[in-house]
């Protein structure tokens, strides 16, 4: 696939989200971002700063209180109903009555012909994706019979089956050990490089953010604002050893100090 037109990316214009109720929370304030199509953007920030809210606004699941979101020239809501998004939620959100393979195939069942990979070979694709995320042999297990980390990998395979043009990933690897996480990071980069999807990737790990992303957005809590957008200078493909290089380390500590000073303000 050819790289998508940069002008057709995701544009957030002074987006703000306030949750009402007895004690209103300003989850996001004045967030403006331009994400060119095909970019890998990481979002870091302390717990409760509005990362999940940001993804939900981009995906059209949540209407911003103020500001506008445009995705490939459409409204977020329009893009959502055109199934432009693949969303990996913070929790795996598997259906307990479906086996692992059934969960991976769920988007295909719902989308039918709207799924670009729909066809007689879809089940084979689902099995391959399960192998890719290291779950070969667990196709017939029910979610309740899988560990937390395995469940989140089922959710990952499920989102990859319909090749959405934009992937929104909310701490997809949070429940995984370091080795599995490394492996899946490389695999995700592989998918991204092949399909040139746009990726918005929320993580708590600054290292993971820098390793994966073209740019890293740092959010501050209450109200959730963008305090910094760092461009990651490293060329691709990036080997895992990159993380031990001094330049990588100094960028890590720079972002970490941004997050720390931020907690005091």
């Amino acid at each position: 696939m050819s790289p998508r037109d940069v002008g057709s990316g995701i544009v957030l214009d002074s987006v703000g989200v306030t949750f009402g109720g007895e004690n209103p929370v300003i989850a996001l304030e004045d967030v403006s971002l331009e994400i060119p199509a095909g970019e890998f953007l990481a979002i870091v920030g302390p717990s409760g700063c509005g990362k999940s809210t940001l993804l939900r606004v981009v995906s059209g699941l949540l209407e911003p209180t103020v500001g506008t979101v445009s995705v490939h020239g459409k409204t977020a809501e329009q893009a959502r109903s055109d199934v432009e998004f693949g969303f990996v939620f913070q929790d795996p959100v598997l259906f307990p009555w479906l086996r692992a393979l059934g969960n991976v195939l769920l988007p295909d069942k719902i989308l039918g012909k709207r799924n670009p990979t729909h066809g007689p070979q879809t089940e084979e694709l689902a099995r391959r994706l399960m192998r890719d995320v290291g779950l070969a042999g667990f196709e017939e297990h029910y979610p309740a019979q899988l560990s937390g980390g395995m469940q989140s990998r089922v959710a990952l395979a499920r989102v990859l089956i319909y090749e959405a043009s934009t992937l929104l990933m909310d701490e997809p690897f949070g429940a995984l050990d370091e080795f599995t996480r490394d492996r899946l990071n490389l695999q995700l980069l592989d998918v991204w490089a092949r399909a040139r999807t746009t990726v918005l990737f929320v993580t708590h790990s600054i290292q993971e953010a820098i390793f994966l992303a073209d740019r890293v957005v740092v959010l501050s809590p209450r109200p959730g604002r963008i305090v910094h957008v760092a461009t990651v200078p490293f060329t691709r493909p990036r080997p895992l050893e990159l993380r031990y290089e001094p330049a990588f380390g100094s960028l890590t500590s720079r972002l970490r100090s941004l997050l720390e000073t931020d907690g005091e303000s």
Binding site: R56, S59, L61, R80, S81, D82, V83, F85, G86, F87, F89, D91, V93, F95, L106, P107, K109, I110, L111, R114, Y162
Partner: peptide, 21 residues
């Protein structure tokens, strides 16, 4: 759960589909 509903919405699932699945 709200999250399961959100998953269906991201997939732009129709009402019938949400009911049966």
């Amino acid at each position: 759960s709200n999250q399961a509903m959100e998953l269906m919405n991201v997939l732009s699932a129709r009402k019938a589909s949400i009911f049966w699945r």
